[in-house]
Each structure stands twice: as C-alpha cells, then as structure tokens.
Design a protein around this nucleic acid. Structure first.
Lengths: 243, 243
DNA sequence: ATTCCTTATTGAGCTTGACTCGAAAATGCC
DNA sequence: GGCATTTTCGAGTCAAGCTCAATAAGGAAT
C-alpha cells in the first residue's frame, strides 16, 4: 500500500525527469548545431535514452525545437521581469534603459534562437512559437510604458504599439548589425551607444518630445532630462530620511 | 565558319537561358514551400532539366537558395532606387515616406525571403547572403539621409547608422507584427499609421527645426506634469522632515 | 509469487530527399 | 566523319527523421 501511494508520484517524477533530460539535451544540441545541424541521435545519446523514445514525448524534431523555443522565451520573460523588479531607480527612462540593455545583450547572445523563432514557421507552417509566448515577453515593455503614462512621465497621446515597434525593432536590427559588423563606415558599434540613442529617442519623442508638427526641441529635451534627474535626486534623498 | 563565330554566342546564351530557367523555377518553389519544403526534384521538373544538372550549376540546395536570395535583394535595391528616382517631390521627409512605404509593403509581401536571409546562416554557416548585397540595399536610405543632411533638412549631428537602425528595424518589426496580427489590444494595424509615425518620429528626432520657437502644448503639458510631480515629492518630503 | 494487463522503451528498418557518379548525349574543333 | 571536351542525365548512395513490432517495466489482482 505504501508503494501504491508513493509510486504514482515517483512514476510521474521519473517521466518528468526524463522529459527534462530530453529538453536539456535538445537545447544544447540545437544551440551548438542549429536546427538543421542538430541530430536526433545525438540528442538521444546525450539524454541517455533510445532515439525512438523521444518520439513518445514529442511528435517531431520541429515540435521538440518548438518546446525548447517556448521554454527559452519564458526564460527571457522571467529574466526581463527580474531586471524590472530589481531596478534600483524608479524613473521610466532609467527602467527603459535597463530593459534595453538586457534585451540587446540577450538578442545578441541568442541570435540563433531569435531567428529560429521566426524562421520555423516558414519551414513548418504548422509549428510556430505561440503568439502568447511572444506577447508575454513584450508585455514587460508594455507594462513599463503604461506605467510611465500613468505617472505622466511620457505623453498621454503616445501609442503603445508604435513605441513597442520602435523599441524592439530598433534593438533587434541593431543587434543583427552589430553581429554582422555590417557598417560600411569604420564606425565601431557597441551596445552602449545603441541603448543610449534608443533612450534619447524615447525621451525626445515620447517624453518631452516634439509637437504634432514635427518640431524637434532639444532645448526642451534638455530641460526634461534635467527635471528627470532632479526627480531622481529627490527620490534618493527621501529614501535616506528617517521615517 | 559562320557557325564557329556564332556558336560561342548562342552557346553562352543557351547556358544563361538554362541558368535563368533554374533560378526562376527555384524562386517559385522556394516561395511556395520554403527552404526545407522545396524539393530539388520539383525545381528540376519545372526547369525541364534533369535533377543532376542543377548540381553542375550550383553546388548545393543552399547555394541555389543563396543565389535566389541575392537576386531578390538586388531586385529590391533596384526597385527602391526607382522609387527614389521617380519620387515627385524633393523634400527629405517626403522621400523618406515613399521609401518607408515601399520597404514596409515589400517586407510584408516577402516575409519568407527576409527571414530566410537571416535564418540560412544558422543552418549553413558557410552560406549567407553577402554583406554587400544587404549594404547595397540600405545604401538607398544612407544616400537619402546624407543628402538630407547636406541640404540642412536634418540635423548635422545625427548619426547615420543610428537612424538606419531605427528606420529599418522599426519597419521590419512592424511588418512582423502586422503579419502576425499579434496585438493584444484590438487595435487594427495597417501600414499607413506605421509609416506615418515613422516619419513623424524622424521629423521630431532628426529634423532640423526652429525648435525654440515652436513650443507645442503637449510638450509643455508634459513638462508641467513633471513639475507637478516634483512639487508633490517635495511636499511629501517636507512633511517627513523633523519639525 | 505468479499472472496478466497496461504502459514505456528500444533500435533495426522504412522512407524521403539531397547529392554523386559513370555513362551517354551534345557540342566543338579539325 | 572522327576525336576531344563539355554538358546532361537519372539510377544509385547515403544520411537522417521517423515508425513499429518486439521487449521490458510497472502495477493490480488472485
């Protein structure tokens, strides 16, 4: 009876452990060799199971890759949320900078997975990372942006999805350019300037930015950033005061 | 002797015609089925040649795809240059809008090829679209931007590659979002607004305008709200100070 | 403990598709 | 026409994803 009560647990645990072993092996092999370069036999060998066993857990190589990708995006989301949670400062632009920094380095680091996420659906139209996983990831930005709007740090009439496109689009393209070192001019491209210009662009356009007629106002931007800094100083000061 | 003089011509022409037939067939099959889904046998059938013959023109399936991709990017470049040449107006922002419009619709139309361009290098590390082809394409933007700077239509201190990243990055990301219709909110996303906001963003951030005199109300409202918040912070702080 | 049933695992083989290669056809040259 | 070179071909090879019949393991009932 004791075994009867315990076994279902251990049995499930055993299956889960095996599934984790497969996923871990798959992740490694996919990272090392890419999708096409990855051999199911090697994944099986690393997971220390028979090759056929994989197919009782996953329909196909593509579905296995899909699961790895979804796990990957979920991990990214958690990390991004952690970055937001652990952010020392509270200002919108400082947090945005932290997010941009994290996203850019992540995208550069994991360019394979990023590309595969969008390339897979071409190869296998049935298999693609669910919209929900991607949406969950960009929700980190969305929440930050909405909060900035609520606090009046950015324009009320700013359109969320437009800002999102600029943010993630620019960072991804920059990442690709950096990784390609594709610049014709000799300009060295590092992560720092990319993030800096992203923030400055957001300050200009969504913060104390332009009017609807497209008149840029560096003067006002300067004023705005000075105010931001002042505000941070106040925050810092108030934290040091005794209750 | 007449044949001797003519044959080299017709012979080369014959080979070139065959090569074009292969490429045309390949393009069609790749577009219809993607890279992995494409069958060399079908390409051979459509080009009306033996399957082995393809391999006397191209090393491998990947190299064939690569050639198709390079042809594709060259075509894009020519079309983009044509759009610039035929543009009725001469202003920087009008031309930029035309380019953005063209690029966005092209990217949406040919999302497969765009993705494959960057996905291929993962699968086959030796084969990737040469940087030159991509650089040649983005040069259309680069030239436009530099010309705008020369004419004083945009800021002199604007950094070209930053602007390029924002332009192409945002448009590509928007294209993907549009094609995914991934927006959580019900917002319909069409091409028009995307291009419009792109232009407005460029006007604001890169436009060389008489900013000091064009104080827009949103800008002032934003500054005002920041001051309000600062004032609130000050009040809160002063209440906590020892009497 | 034995038996029986259900479920999990396995790897030899099937299938598919990219690619090779020896032969044959076409072309070039005299 | 006859020889040399080039081009074309498709049957055969090979590699890799996937299947499936056989086997093992796990658990319940007698």
């Amino acid at each position: 009876m004791a075994t009867k009560a315990v076994n279902p647990e251990t049995q499930r645990a055993k299956l889960e452990r095996k599934e984790r072993a497969i996923l871990e092996a798959a992740r490694g092999v996919f990272v090392e060799h890419g999708f096409d370069g990855a051999r199911m036999s090697e994944i099986a060998r690393r997971a220390q199971i028979g090759e056929g066993t994989i197919y009782s857990y996953y329909e196909s190589k593509a579905e296995l890759m899909l699961t790895v990708l979804q796990q990957f995006w979920d991990g990214l989301t958690l990390e991004a949320e952690a970055v937001m949670a652990s952010s020392q400062v509270d200002g919108f632009f400082e947090r945005l900078q932290a997010l941009a920094q994290y996203h850019l380095s992540t995208v550069i680091e994991n360019a394979d997975f990023i590309n595969l996420t969008f390339a897979l659906r071409r190869n296998n139209s049935e298999v693609s990372v669910s919209r929900d996983h991607l949406r969950h990831y960009v929700a980190v930005f969305d929440n930050l942006f909405r909060r900035g709007q609520d606090r009046g740090e950015i324009r009320q009439d700013a359109v969320l999805w437009q800002a999102r496109d600029v943010f993630y689009g620019t960072l991804e393209y920059s990442a690709r350019s950096i990784e390609m070192t594709m610049d014709a001019d000799r300009t060295e491209r590092h992560q720092g300037p990319v993030v800096d210009q992203m923030i400055s662009l957001f300050r200009a356009h969504y913060g104390a930015g332009p009017d609807e007629y497209g008149l840029a106002s560096p003067t006002l931007n300067n004023l705005s950033s000075k105010l931001d800094r002042l505000s941070e100083q106040f925050d810092a000061l108030s934290k040091r005061l005794p209750q």
